[in-house]
Write a protein that binds this DNA or RNA. Sequence first.
DNA 1: CTCCCAAGATAGTGCAACTATCTAGTGCTG
DNA 2: CAGCACTAGATAGTTGCACTATCTTGGGAG
Lengths: 235, 235
Amino acid sequence: MKISELSRRTGVPVASIKYFRREGLLPAGRATAATLAEYGDEHVQRLRLIKALTALGGLSIAATREVLAALDRADTIDGTLGAISYALPVPVAESPAADAGEDARAAAAADADVAELVAAMDWQVSDVSPHVRGLATAVKELRRLDPHYRPDRLVAYAGLARDIARLDLERAAAIDDPAALAEQAVIVFALSAPVLELLRRLAQEDLVRRRIARDAAADGADGAPEPAAGGAAAP
Amino acid sequence: MKISELSRRTGVPVASIKYFRREGLLPAGRATAATLAEYGDEHVQRLRLIKALTALGGLSIAATREVLAALDRADTIDGTLGAISYALPVPVAESPAADAGEDARAAAAADADVAELVAAMDWQVSDVSPHVRGLATAVKELRRLDPHYRPDRLVAYAGLARDIARLDLERAAAIDDPAALAEQAVIVFALSAPVLELLRRLAQEDLVRRRIARDAAADGADGAPEPAAGGAAAP
DNA sequence: CTCCCAAGATAGTGCAACTATCTAGTGCTG
DNA sequence: CAGCACTAGATAGTTGCACTATCTTGGGAG
């Protein structure tokens, strides 16, 4: 098909398709002449994946390129899984440090917490894993901001994280073809994060509502502050 | 303290502090004269929170403003919890629809999946909850992209999401003061999302490594591929 | 008195993600 | 075979966000 039809079939503007090509997210079409190229279903599929990663997974173009590159050099299954995992960014940035000395101490404490956690979970992770670094940063911030922070709470979360990871891997386990698995893995890894987050919010909402109901019942008849929970903030 | 000291104490440039004030994230200092204002510890704390939400939680300035506004109008505890939850954005955008008819059908199927899930979990959620809408969008995309998608997998994830929400609420349950709880809730809600995501990645990494080890043992020799540490782009 | 700093307003910067325009070439139509 | 629609590829422009710098005016302290 020609680029205009590729555009029509995917809903992505022609200019954007060209942009993705320039950025190396989308392979070029098979050139049939100097000014004509033929695109196929694989381009449709790839465009879908790109839009899913950026719009739904919230990845930047650069991160998407990393992920797709890992996907394309899919050689061995598990190696590809690892590459994709590392290529997917987690939004954790350092916040500015006021006091260098105190910051260093906090960083050390956070590192220790993470090391302890990894040991407690008996996790086998690379010591250059960006996730370990990211987690240490996040924990450092948590220690600073949360007066009720306790390392053992982290362990409880880690246990659940393991359960989730098992589900993730289970979803990928059924596939044998490396290329198909890689694509599947991208979907599982990148897209289930927002899904899980949404599910968590819904579960929170449910629990809060039940708490309101329970409190109202316990308080008796007084003008119980009824669920403002409705439209609250959302603009 | 003067603005220069506030800047020094938090590591945030003066110009940025002024910017946050303009954007309504930070209250003005107590003006002692036409060209002088006094800032206090609450400003230091608020700046920390702002940096945590933006740098660590990945929130935009607009989203941060929403959250802080919900925090500031903390009246009843549970109402505030709901407001904060709704104000926190989840990065789920529609991807472009090629075929309006097919898209509508897919949307309906996704809506049905979500409704079924909510019923199965016996979740009490508002029917205007942005999370329900977001989840429906995500599921729609998942149906399109994942040939192995099955609604019942969603239920397994939802169960774990509930467990996580219980942990979240537990962390907040100990606090009685609405204002303190609101701030705590912001931290718990916004910052534990990246932490959880990181934990999930680590757990995945561990499982993949164990799988490599197991496969290598089963296969005999064969070079086990290390996850190639790619440059993970942080947007 | 005078120099440094503060407040507030306004304008500018840098980056990411597109989007539009331009040039030159090509294929199909009549 | 003339002509128009369409294409590839290059380059430039736009938009939105998050700052960052500059400018003006007005105190305050030594």
